[in-house]
Design a protein around this nucleic acid. Sequence first.
RNA 1: GGCGCCGUAGCCAAGCGGUAAGGCAGAGGUCUGCAAAACCUUUAUUCGGCGGUUCGAUUCCGCCCGGCGCCUCCA
Length: 466
Amino acid sequence: MGLRLYNTLTLKVEPFSPANGNTVRMYSCGPTVYNYAHIGNLRTFTFNDTLRRWLRYRGFLLEHVMNITDVEDKIIRKSMELGVPMEQYTRKYEQFFLEDMATMRLEKPERIVRATEHIQEMVDLISTLAQKGFTYESDGSVYYRISKFPSYGKLSHHDFSGIQAGARVDNDEYDKDDARDFVLWKQRKGAEPCWDAPFGAGRPGWHIECSAMAMKYLGDTLDIHTGGVDLAFPHHENEIAQSEAATGKPFARFWLHCEHLHVDMQKMSKSLGNIYTLRELIDMGYSPEALRFVLMSVPYRKKLNFTLDSLKGAQSSIERLRNYKLRLQSGRLSDGLNESISELSRFALHKFEAAMDDDLNTAEALAAVFEYVRETNTLLDQGVFVAGNRAEALQLLARFDQVFAVLEPTMTAGLLDDSSIEALIAERTAAKKAKQFSRADDIRNQLLEAGIILEDTKDGVRWKRK
RNA sequence: GGCGCCGUAGCCAAGCGGUAAGGCAGAGGUCUGCAAAACCUUUAUUCGGCGGUUCGAUUCCGCCCGGCGCCUCCA
C-alpha cells in the first residue's frame, strides 16, 4: 500500500511520495538554544528521527534541514543577564543539544542551520514581502499584514473572521493594526544584538527564519515540514503566510506534528518540578536507549504519558530483544531450513513494515516484532528452529533496529574486557566440574559486581553486560 | 466561547463494523549443584456511562461524565 502520512493541512492520512524524483525535501523546526533540551523536546526530535529512518528504509534520499534558533527574546534576556555575548551563550547550549541528539542516536539532518547566519536571507524575504504589499511599519518595526493573506488559518483550521481588524493588543510592546499580525523585523532596542537592514537596524522576528532558511536550501515547496503540535499555530501558520505570499506557491505539501509528552498525566512545568532532561535520567541510571524506546513506543500523534516506571519497563523490553538476539547468535542449531518458519519470518517483517507505512504506527510495528520473538523462542525451545532460519530472524532484528536503534547497549567505561571475562568463566566452569561450588559462586559474584551476568544454559555459559 | 484530541486489564498501549495485538509488572512452570539469568504459560465474556443505527459496535451517530490540547511564548 505504500507509505501514508497524516497531514495537518488536510486532517487526513495521505499516500506520501516526494514531488520530484526520489529525494524528500524536509524541514524540521529545531531547538531554541537557551537551555538544556527536556524529554518533551526530545520526543519531537526522536519523531523526526523515526520519520527520517523510515523514509530511508523505504529507499528515499533525504535533504533534511533543521534550524537552530540562536537569536530570540529569551536568549537575549538571559545572555544579557549573565553578561555573556549572545553567541557564546547559544553555542554552549547548541553543543549540549547536539550531544544529546548523538546520545539519543538521532540521525543528523543533512543541514543544521543557524538563524544568525541567515539574516541576509531574512532581510531579502522581508523586502520581497514589502514590495508585494504584505507589510507595514509601526514604531520602526515591520509587521506582516494578515488581512492581505486570505487563506490564513488553513493549517490550524482556525476561523479568524471573528477577530476585528484594527483591534489593538495592549499587552504587546509593539503596536499592530490587527491582533493576528506578527512581527517580521523588530526595531533595535538598547544594547540588544542587531543587524542593519533597509528598514532600519534591528533583529528578525521568530517566524521569518524558518521560511527564509527552508526556501534557501529546499526550494519554494517542501515535501514535508515537521514540528511539535504547539507550533502549528501560530508559528507554522505564519511561515505559510510569509512563504506563500512571497512565492505564490504552496510552502509545504505535508505538515506533520508530533504530540506532546506529559509527565505523570501532567504537563511538564517548573512549578511541578516534573521537567526531566536526558542528562538527569542518565544520572539516575537509566539508559538513553530506554528513553528512546519509551519515546518511540507510542505513536507520534498520541499524547505520551511519561513515567519513570515506563522507563524501567522499556529497559526490560529492550533486554528481552537483546537476549533473543544473543540466543540466536550463540545457540547451537541443527542444520536445515524450516520453510514454515521462513513463512513466519516473512509475515512478521510484512506486519512490521505495514505498521510503519501506516503513518509510523510504531506501537503496532513493535508488537509484530515481539510476537515473532515469542513464537520463535518457543520454536527454539522445541528444537524445530534450525540453522537455516537464523539469518532471517537476525535480519528481522536488523531491520527493526535500523529504525528503532535500541539493540546496541550504550557502553559504560571501566569494565572487564572480554578475554578476562571468558577466562573467569572458564575457571568457574572448571570449579563446577570439580564440585567446588563455593569457588564457582565466588567467581559468579565477582563477575556480577563487575556488571556481567552469567546465564547457564544447556549449551553452556552465556554472558552479557548489565 | 471557538476548534480539536482522548477515556481499552495493576500500569503503558494497538485495534476502529465481525466478535479484544504487544510490552511492563504480578502469578505459575521449565531449566539449575543452589541460584540467577533466560524462556514458556497465564492475567479484559469485555473496551467511561446511557441511548440509537446495524444481522452484528470497542469500532458509526447522539447525549452525558471524566481528562487534555490549541486559540498568547512553548517541542
